[in-house]
Design a protein around this nucleic acid. Structure first.
Lengths: 235, 235
DNA sequence: TAATTTTATAACAATTTAGTAATAAAAAAA
DNA sequence: TTTTTTTATTACTAAATTGTTATAAAATTA
């Protein structure tokens, strides 16, 4: 753990003492802050007092309320990611089938290591749910592999998207055609003429520029190649 | 700035006192640690004593050595990102043309705000130069929009890539065909039958699975849809 | 086991893509 | 201005993609 890094808070809702305490110990070792409760009413209280909780682990069989019923009530307090702890195939089917918006589930008995991996995956997704670049009026969303122009989907081919991405990750740097070809095409591929890239640039401009004859996004740097217009990285 | 966040260190190599000091002041306001030197020999010493420097701002006209010649000597000490501060179009052409591996350049006079934006962009790229998922023997590289199987490029179409990505960002979650169609296809698009997706899954499996008849990456969840096999996120 | 449901596979045609070559236009140099 | 160099555009074909339909296979249920 990095010096000064903020600890993520985990709420465990589980009535089985050995599971709850074992998990608490393990996750604390892993440098999480753990709050553990035994039933639904305690859970609602705990979450209300810890609105900055990063993730909830929710057992389905609780003494006072069913986990499926508790789920929306927790979500109403704060939209925290929730992983179900399921005890049977029946419960698994219900979690899957309901599509209630659970972020994940894991079936007992499970290895703590496996649960930790899933916690990290969910947190990674939740903490990093924007992965976009904005350049003028277009947005490149890495997570969806989509390019939007004024919010509308632009259909790029696989190669066009790769070329644009190559620019987006290296703004302000001028690329020669050879460099882009080397970046985007397979290494083992046979030689592709660099005039080919000129044609690709035209096609991409046709799709993303407001005025393709006066490009603002992919700029020609005469004698060298192309570069991206100035832009800012969106959050 | 977050509590306890580690300050990034910037080395400014610039002989003009007003630029150097103005920049130092501005970047310190922005919570960077700044080391500033006036010439090449001081720069080499400073970098040697500060190998954890995050980024170097390098003026080209220095009293004792040319910035272009200093560049490789700095790089030999530690492979730190370097932004050139250029004073003329001629220098710009040289930076562009040489393709020596500068991470960016900016032409004087420049706005401190603009330079800061470029510093952030370079740091963002450098600190985050891995954006990969590993699932069994395949790797998905978001930054290059490439899928590798045992290190070799797998050619996926735009749609195949989007579908795979949709799984990769939501592992352990079972997707219905309808959900994936809604995720990947344009919202405004006319209806696409969900058997279509079955065909896409087959095609993707054909390309990425070791044994497509016994898939380990895209798992069928009978009666519901598909999910990704267990995996770990690569660093 | 037989019937039913669900998923996988194969085959097909309209459309799109990939790459080339030839020509036009624009910019730079002579 | 004229010539040369560089980039943009157009047009073209082989190949690949997209989405459908029909059929086979597998899993589930009766």
């Amino acid at each position: 753990m990095e010096l000064g890094e903020i600890m993520e808070k985990i709420l465990i809702i589980e009535d089985d003492n050995s599971i709850r305490e074992g998990l608490k110990y393990y996750l604390e070792q892993e440098k999480y802050e753990v709050i553990d409760v035994k039933d639904g009413s305690q859970a609602l209280l705990a979450l209300t007092n810890n609105m900055n909780t990063s993730i909830v682990l929710l057992d389905i069989n609780l003494p006072d309320i069913n986990g499926f019923d508790l789920f929306p009530r927790l979500k109403r307090i704060v939209n925290v990611p929730i992983i179900f702890l399921t005890a049977s195939d029946l419960e698994v089917s219900i979690v899957r089938g309901l599509d209630m918006g659970a972020d994940d589930y894991i079936t007992k008995p499970f290895k703590a290591r496996e649960l930790l991996s899933r916690i990290k995956t969910v947190l990674r997704r939740v903490n990093n749910n924007s992965n976009c670049f904005n350049i003028h009026n277009i947005t490149i969303d890495l997570n969806q592999a989509k390019v939007l122009k004024n919010g509308k989907d632009v259909m790029l081919t696989a190669l066009e998207y790769k070329i644009l991405l190559s620019f987006a990750l290296n703004p302000n740097i001028v690329f020669t055609r050879e460099k882009i070809l080397a970046d985007v095409w397979d290494v083992e591929e046979e030689y592709v003429s660099d005039n080919t890239l000129t044609v690709y640039i035209k096609r991409i401009r046709e799709k993303i520029e407001d005025d393709p004859t006066n490009p603002k996004i992919i700029i020609t740097v005469r004698g060298i190649g192309y570069k991206l217009g100035d832009y800012y990285v969106g959050e």
